[in-house]
Each structure stands twice: as C-alpha cells, then as structure tokens.
Design a protein around this nucleic acid. Structure first.
Length: 445
RNA sequence: GCACCCGUAGCUCAGCUGGAUAGAGUACCUGACUACGAAUCAGGGGGUCGCACGUUCGAAUCGUGCCGGGUGCACCA
C-alpha cells in the first residue's frame, strides 16, 4: 500500500471506532478487487517481473503496471516455478499467476494494515461474485423491479470520446433513484462491467442484514457515488442508507519540500516506510487532522518532531501530565482513586481557567454525537487538541499563580476537586484517542 | 457542457442539524522555567468568512445565481 491508500484505511477504521463508541454494531470490510480484467493486467505485469528474475529484459508495455512492488512477486514466481513458465503462452500461466499475484498483494496489504493498527472483520473477494450466480441474483432483483432494460445511452455531453458509437447495452435505470444517467451493467462484449459486481457486493451486504452501509473510497471515484446510492436504494427498497465517504489525496512533504511520487513510474512512498519512520500513532492522528474530503499535507519532518508542531504529542503529553499529577497527589497522601474523586466538591472550581476547561469537557458528549452522525472522525482529533490546550493552560497557571496548582497541601478538598477535573480530562482524551486508534500514553519520557 | 467537492487571518486549516465580540496552528513581535513534566504557557498585530441576491428576529452556516480551484464524465477499474 502506498500512503494514499492509508488515509482511507485509517479514516474508515477511525470512523468504525467512533460508531462503535457511539453504540453501533460495526463490521469492517475490505473489498478485494481480485476480479475482472485488472487482475489479468496484474498477472501479466508479474509475468514480466518473473522473466526479469531470470535475467531477461522485462517488457513492461503500455497498460501494464510498472511499479517496483511487483519485483518480489517475480522473484517468488521464480522460486515456485523455476524456469518452467519461460516462453510459455499466456494460456498456460495466466490463471495461476492471477491467483498467485493477488494472494501476494493481499498478504502485503494485510501486513500493512496490521502495521497501522487496522483490523478488518471481513475480506470480501470480488472474484467470489463471479460464476457463483451472485451477480445474476442481484441483477434479477433489480430486473424484478423493472429497473433493468436493453437500451442505447445518450452520448455524453461536452466533448465526445473519439471512439464513441451508439451501442445497445443492458442498463440499470439508476435515474429512477437520482442518478444523472442510466448505467450499463454489461459490456458490449457481453461481460460484466465493473459496476455489476459492485452492485452484487452491496446486495450481498443488504442480504446479510446490515441496516446502514458506508463506503470509503478515493476522491477520484466521486462520479460513482450517485449510481451506487441508486443501486442500494433500489436493492433495499430505500430501507438501507448508503453513505459514501471520499478521501482526498495525501501530499507528502519533507521540510516543506514536496516529495515526488510518480504514479506512472509506480514510485510510491510506501506506507511501511512512513510507519517505520514516524510510527503508527503519529501517522494515524495526522491523517485524521483533516476532513476526509480535504487534501492532506503530510510532512515527515513535522511528524517526527516531538513538539507543539506535532498535534499527537501535544495531546498525548496532556494525558501523560494528568497521570503524572495523579501520581504526585498519591505521593502527597491524597486518595485519588476514581471512587474517591466521585465525592469531590466540584463547586470549588470557580477560576475562569477551570470553568473553561469544565465547559470544554461538557462539549464532549455532544461532539461525539455530531461526529458519529456526520461520519466525521476528524472532529474528535480537533476536539482533543483543544481539550489538551485548555488543560495545558490550566496546568501552566500553577507556575504563575501557586495557589492554582492542582495539589494544595493545605486544602485537600480543593485539591480533590481539581484532580477530579483533570482526571475527567484524561478519561476523555483516552477515550478519544482510543476511538482514533492512537495510544493514550501514560508517560512520555 | 454536466455532476460532485472546495473557496474563512500572509500560509495550512477548524467551525456549517442557523444564535452572542468568527477560532486554532503556523509565521512575525514581546514575555514566562529554584516549585504538580517549559515536549508547556501568556500577550500583541493580522479576516469584506470568494461575490451578489434571497429565507430568517438572527446566516461563515440554509436557498438561488455567478466567479475561482480540484475531481470525475459510454463500453476501462
């Protein structure tokens, strides 16, 4: 996986965590694109790398995947097949290589997901929809509702594709559900379009009884939203809502200098490189400090910095500080268990800095509700930063005004109230970071 | 041409189920460490919330139109 994919994975995982926290029963699914012609391309590309592993010059022609990530696949193929596939026709090896390559890609993806702390409940294979009657079943469902027909599409407005010609195709009447045009489910050669298995996948989800669906996609799939929503509405008789979250690109920087990622040459910055350098916590948090549909700048240098420039440390530091105070209070002979703190007299909190922290804390349930309802986990990240900020301000006040220190040796009741307050801060931070999948460190030395 | 997303401080962005003087980071300037962790904090300057209408007691937030930027646009995934 390259870092672009990561954002979707982190976003989806954090959203799932958020919904779980809000009381939903969530299933995280990964849809494996292991069907269709793209896998043929993958297999052919891997074959060239296999030849390369034998010292032959790979012929990575236009249309194949040029990325370096297939080099190990070629080597693994050499390991398994020796030279038995060299100069053999495609018919001999294509099927085997399809499976071999997708398996290896998926292993790699699973490893990457684990490295970033993402655990999927279900890996759903697109391939499993072909030849099993599932696509047919989904389309039959639509057909029974009168939403499938043979027809010819209007040419697209604006500039016409050069090889445009009117063709009769099998179409889904997605305009019935708000789409701009009806969409083909079969290609002119009789094969399924990519849209057909996608319909079948969503149908399968509906059949499995989910009452709410969320897709996380790259922003370049924006044009696909209406038709998919139309399909799910049709399949579920408008009973199952589908929300589609589009994640924008991640731009990598190092000290403000853009990091070149040539997609054509396949030179991606890999997720594992990023995680190795900055760690999963930082990677995740930074990915969530932007709205999902806004582009994200990811600066390595800042991600490595352990300062206010780096929001993760700022938040974690607040959490660590609270724990430090709790320890100090214990050493000072105060009983600071949660049970003891429940008895604290909170009316003793009346300094503006204390009250503003109380206020911020009071926003937490409401914020959770909005974040969950709008499917926007970034709100949690921003909130945690603000909460940490208010906390840091209050703690620092103790340096300027000693009577504002949390622990007042001469006044246990006051101390208890303040410690109850900051303990609440720690609880919220731990919960919030937990939702985002970031470790709430107790100390950061 | 059509659809979707975006346009808020010099820069990067929050805020948008309508509500009080529009927030943060960064940058720039000035300050605070014998004491709960200075990986921190305080203060200062800096904004016609793209533009214009409209709905409303009230609009950055909702609606319409326009301007500017991004993405996508038969049969490829």
């Amino acid at each position: 996986m390259h870092v672009g994919h990561t954002r979707g994975a982190v976003f989806g995982d954090a959203l799932a965590g958020l919904l779980e926290f809000a009381g939903y029963d969530v299933t995280r699914e990964y849809y494996i694109n292991d069907g269709g012609t793209q896998v043929d391309v993958l297999a052919r590309s891997a074959y060239e790398r296999y030849r390369e592993a034998h010292g032959l010059e790979p012929e990575i022609v236009e249309g194949l995947y040029p990325g370096d990530y297939l080099i190990p696949v070629g080597e693994a193929l050499k390991e398994k097949y020796g030279d038995s596939l060299i100069d053999q026709p495609e018919s001999v090896w294509l099927e085997d290589l399809r499976e071999f390559s997708t398996d290896m890609m998926m292993d790699s993806i699973r490893t990457d997901l684990a490295a970033i702390g993402v655990t999927m409940d279900v890996f759903f294979s697109e391939k499993s929809l072909y030849g099993t009657g599932k696509i047919e079943a989904a389309l039959d469902n639509l057909d029974a509702k009168g939403l499938i027909y043979q027809g010819v599409l209007e040419p697209p407005k604006g500039k016409l594709p050069e090889d445009w010609e009117a063709r009769e195709q099998t179409l889904f009447k997605s305009t019935e559900y708000g789409d701009d045009a009806d969409r083909p489910v079969k290609k002119s050669d009789g094969g399924w379009t990519y849209f057909a298995p996608d319909i079948a996948y969503h149908f399968d989800k509906v059949e499995r009884g989910f009452d709410e669906l969320i897709d996380v996609l790259g922003a370049d799939h924006g044009g696909y939203v209406k038709r998919m929503k139309a399909a799910v509405s049709a399949l579920s008789d408008s009973k199952v809502p589908l929300d589609i979250k589009l994640c924008q690109l991640v731009k990598l920087y190092k000290n403000g200098e853009p990091f070149k990622m040539s997609k054509r040459a396949g030179n991606f910055v890999l997720l594992r490189d990023v995680v190795e350098q900055v760690g999963a916590d930082v990677t995740r948090f930074i990915m969530l400090t932007r709205k999902n549909d806004a582009p994200l700048d990811f600066d390595f240098a800042k991600a490595l910095e352990q300062s206010k420039d780096n929001p993760v440390f700022y938040v974690q530091y607040a959490h660590a500080r609270v724990n430090s105070v709790l320890t100090k209070a214990g050493e000072a002979g105060l009983e600071v268990s949660d049970k003891a703190l429940e008895k604290a007299d909170m009316s003793l909190l009346n300094h503006p800095a204390e009250l503003s922290l109380v206020q911020k804390l009071a926003e937490w349930p409401r914020l959770l509700e909005i974040a969950a309802k709008t499917h926007e986990p970034h709100r949690i990240a921003f909130y945690l930063y603000e909460l940490a900020s208010d906390f840091h301000a209050l703690q620092h006040l103790g340096k300027i005004e000693p009577e504002m220190r949390f622990i007042q040796a001469a006044n246990p009741a006051q101390s208890l109230a303040r410690i109850a307050l900051i303990r609440a801060v720690a609880v919220a931070i731990a919960a919030g970071l937990g939702i985002l999948g970031v470790t709430p460190a107790k100390e950061m030395r």
